[in-house]
Design a protein around this nucleic acid. Structure first.
Lengths: 140, 140
DNA sequence: CCATTCTTTTGAGTTACTCAAAATAAACGC
DNA sequence: GCGTTTATTTTGAGTAACTCAAAAGAATGG
């Protein structure tokens, strides 16, 4: 049978392999996940896989636009399935926990800088830094 | 004699060593520089230094707030001397060139998100992605 | 079902650091 | 100035997170 993930893959011009489906499934249930955690989740279903394959698949899916890759300073690359909107992220400066942030002002003025030094701006990426709820409690 | 950089270091509670002064001098003349390039610049003045020392110094200066560290996705950590303002960066998606961007709207609305999922926001970091002038020419 | 082409596997290699112990250099008091 | 204390740097080893390439193995189209 043709699952939803299968057709998503084929729609992006990729073959629907067990590894790719397993990676997509893992990312549906866990947001902001690094390659190592994806690998562990996929291993449960597909014990023959390797961390290199997972890196490879994550790179392919990112290029195809099926997942999004973020790289907050100080942490390994993280991947997420939520790609349809241009949302941003907030990272806990204490524990590294990550949350999604909807950009309140869609096309904010400061996101189209007047002086970009001659650069042609394509996208703007915003990362917030702060304390997550549980680190706020711990800090009291 | 006591140079300006010396007192900057001492003001931050750090000893004014030749290595630290050389790193600061290197960063005054080159913006957005990675550890390797800093190391090469410092080596000219201080041939006995090592890349580890440079990493060490860069980390100390960053912690002391004398330099700023940025980590655009896909590149090594870059350091800059401009720290007094909260400016942003634009990275060329083609060649990796980096430019500074003054945030047009100081305290922009989208930089203080209403729904941060319970996080206490401390800072917002904006990275623009686009084509630098010379890559725009090359793409014509 | 077969051939072709795309993917994954396996194994090696790299970059950009980090960590720790020993050697060295600043800075302070005298 | 001179020695002592304590901060830094040096030297050497170690690691995380990938990247690259060749060979083996699956998906599709016909």
């Amino acid at each position: 049978m043709e699952t939803e993930l299968d057709s998503a893959l084929r729609g992006a011009g990729l073959r629907a392999t067990a590894g790719r489906v397993a990676v997509l499934e893992a990312l549906e249930s866990m947001a902001h996940t690094d390659a190592e955690r994806v690998f562990r989740a996929v291993s449960d279903v597909l014990p023959t896989t390797s961390i290199q394959s997972v890196h490879n698949i994550l790179a392919d899916l990112t290029t195809a636009g099926l997942i999004r890759r973020i790289e907050p300073a100080g942490s390994a690359a993280l991947y997420e399935r939520r790609i349809d909107d241009n949302h941003h992220h907030i990272v806990c400066t204490q524990c590294g926990a990550i949350g999604d942030v909807d950009c309140v002002v869609g096309e904010a003025p400061c996101l189209t800088p007047s002086s970009a030094g001659g650069f042609a701006v394509q996208t703007a990426e915003v990362t917030f830094w702060g304390l997550c709820p549980s680190c706020q409690n711990a800090a009291q």
